[in-house]
Every structure is written in structure tokens, then in C-alpha cells.
């Protein structure tokens, strides 16, 4: 038996919405970063669902490339967060106002 593709796409859309809320509402840079990871993976889920729907293995290859890009992004992003917040009292993106106009 095969599960309907629509159900996976609904889960994917809801996961993406949860991640977007996290980025907009939270101020802790680490949790914002994890919310971005949620959104990457929501998109991966819909890519895999569409790959099965259209029997296209290229969708799987694309998800593989996305995973590699996400791993690189996490490495760079986390080192930047560590450098910026190591000597601060607050882990809060609102305190980053050095470029305020």
C-alpha cells in the first residue's frame, strides 16, 4: 500500500511554518539557528515526497546536496555565533546593534 503524497506535504508545510515562527519570535541565536534547520528539513521532506510521486531519483540527489550545504552552513554559522557571543552577557540578537543607523 502507498501513503498519499499530500499528507507528507502537509507535514512539511507545518514544519516549515513552525521553523519560520521560531526565527521570527526567538532572540537566542542558537535556537533561531535550530529553527532554520527545521525549515531546511521541511523542504527536504517535500522534495522526497515529490520524488516518490514522480518516481524521479534526481529529487533524492537534490536532497543529498541540500544536506551537504546545510552541514557547511551549520559549521560556518556556529563558529560566527561563538565568536560574537563568547564575551557577551546576553545570548540575544537584539544586542547586536553595532550597525544601527
Amino acid at each position: 500500500m502507498t501513503l498519499p503524497t499530500v499528507d507528507f506535504l502537509v507535514v512539511s508545510a507545518l514544519l516549515f511554518a513552525i521553523g519560520a515562527v521560531g526565527v521570527m519570535v526567538r532572540k537566542n541565536p542558537l535556537i533561531m539557528f535550530m529553527a532554520i534547520e527545521l525549515m531546511w528539513n521541511a523542504v527536504n521532506l517535500s522534495l522526497v515526497a515529490f520524488a516518490r510521486q514522480f518516481q524521479a531519483i534526481s529529487g533524492h540527489i537534490f536532497v543529498f546536496v541540500v544536506v551537504v550545504a546545510a552541514a557547511a552552513e551549520v559549521a560556518i554559522g556556529l563558529i560566527i555565533i561563538v565568536l560574537v557571543f563568547r564575551h557577551r552577557d546576553q545570548a540575544d540578537v537584539d544586542t547586536l546593534n553595532a550597525m544601527k543607523g
Binding site: 532572540k27 535556537i31 557571543f85 557577551r88 552577557d89 546576553q90 545570548a91 540575544d92 537584539d94
Partner: peptide, 8 residues
């Protein structure tokens, strides 16, 4: 640690 940065 005790001086852990907090989210305001």
C-alpha cells in the same frame, strides 16, 4: 557556567 548568557 554561572555567567551564562541569557536571552532577554
Amino acid at each position: 557556567g554561572t555567567r551564562a548568557p541569557q536571552e532577554s
